[in-house]
């Protein structure tokens, strides 16, 4: 049986040691080793898995030196060091994927929003000193962009930031569509990106139950509810989705539940197959329409209706 090590293979039965691959191959080979060990630690079925899952650690240094692979401790150390450095660099490059980029992009977008709002408010207060036009926000910045002095400077900065924001939004939308086409199609790219960011990655989002997705972002209300002090929240960040805000108050909980269920499915398709499935959107639209068409009074038949009314209180956002 072969044991894979950083310098090559050890035959566990004969104790024979062999140096595998050329120097330039070492990086790729080690990547495979680490993948193999990762896989085997999950399955523990492959040959490598059995050996490495055993509790005893073979003295790799001793084995390698005895086999004459290295001239001495120093050579062993420096070879080990350079291979480990190379492997870590490869692993880091692999981990800094498109998803990490998406998370940073959405954070950047949120920061931009905040900064632009703060500056626009400042500009408004400032402009009230001399200006009597009742303008606000981007319109005010545009009107003052030609001004001289610090105030005009500020207005121009706001416009430049707004431009940055729109280009960041654009790249965010493109990134969300490539990483999670179904989720982006169903939730809209920005909300999809926000959900992935909240969950800490598409993998974790795909492992979440729909009920968690439904109240994601309403944690404060949820924990208040769990402590028994409030009705349960009906929706978190998915509130912004037209299927939820576009539905009458009384049916929003139901719409949020239906939406969350479909989003959970979409996230799983994106994680495991990545193919766009148009049926998902159709099914959601149908269900949302059904909820909206349903007369609101019907639900009371099921129970005393007390929960329904308390649920109407706005517990989140």
């Amino acid at each position: 049986m072969k044991i894979t090590t950083w310098f090559g293979y050890i035959d566990a039965s004969t104790g024979e040691v062999s140096l595998a691959g050329g120097e330039e191959e070492a990086g790729g080979r080690l990547m495979r080793i680490s993948e193999e060990t990762i896989r085997s630690s999950i399955k523990a079925s492959s040959a490598i898995g059995e050996v490495w899952a055993a509790d005893l650690q073979p003295d790799l240094r001793k084995l390698a030196l005895e086999a004459g692979l290295f001239a001495g401790d120093c050579e062993y150390n420096s070879a080990l060091r350079s291979t480990a450095l190379r492997l870590v660099k490869i692993q880091l490059r692999a981990s800094a994927g498109a998803e990490a980029d998406l998370l940073q992009t959405i954070e950047a977008l949120d920061d931009l929003n905040e900064v632009i709002n703060a500056l626009e408010e400042r500009l408004y207060e400032w402009s009230r000193l001399t200006d009597d036009r009742r303008l606000r926000g981007a319109a005010l910045a545009e009107a003052l962009a030609e001004e001289e002095g610090s105030m005009g400077e500020l207005a121009r900065s706001i416009l430049a930031l707004a431009e940055t924001k729109s280009s960041v939004t654009k790249s965010l939308e493109a990134a969300a569509r490539t990483i999670a086409p179904n989720l982006a199609g169903l939730a809209g790219p920005v909300l999809a990106a926000r959900m992935i960011s909240r969950a800490g990655g598409l993998k974790r989002l795909s492992e979440m139950p729909a009920s968690t997705i439904q109240v994601m972002g309403a944690e404060k209300a949820l924990f208040k509810h769990l402590r028994g002090k409030a009705p349960s929240p009906k929706h978190g960040i998915i509130y912004r989705h037209p299927a939820v805000v576009g539905t009458a108050r009384g049916a929003r909980g139901r719409a949020a539940r239906a939406l969350a269920a479909k989003l959970a499915i979409a996230a799983r398709i994106d994680r495991y197959s990545g193919e766009t499935d148009p049926r998902l959107k159709e099914a959601l639209d149908r269900r949302v329409q059904e909820i909206r068409d349903r007369p609101p009074g019907r639900r009371k038949k099921r129970g005393e209706g007390k929960d329904d009314r308390s649920g109407r209180r706005r517990t989140d956002r």
């Binding site: 080690l30 680490s34 650690q57 001793k62 150390n77 080990l80």
Partner: peptide, 22 residues
């Protein structure tokens, strides 16, 4: 020159076995 970096999870000791010695 005497630090060996290993990007692994400490709760899975067998994963960095291929690099280590006692």
């Amino acid at each position: 020159d005497n630090i060996i970096p290993i990007l692994e999870d400490a709760s899975c000791p067998e994963r960095y076995g291929p690099f280590l010695e006692p």
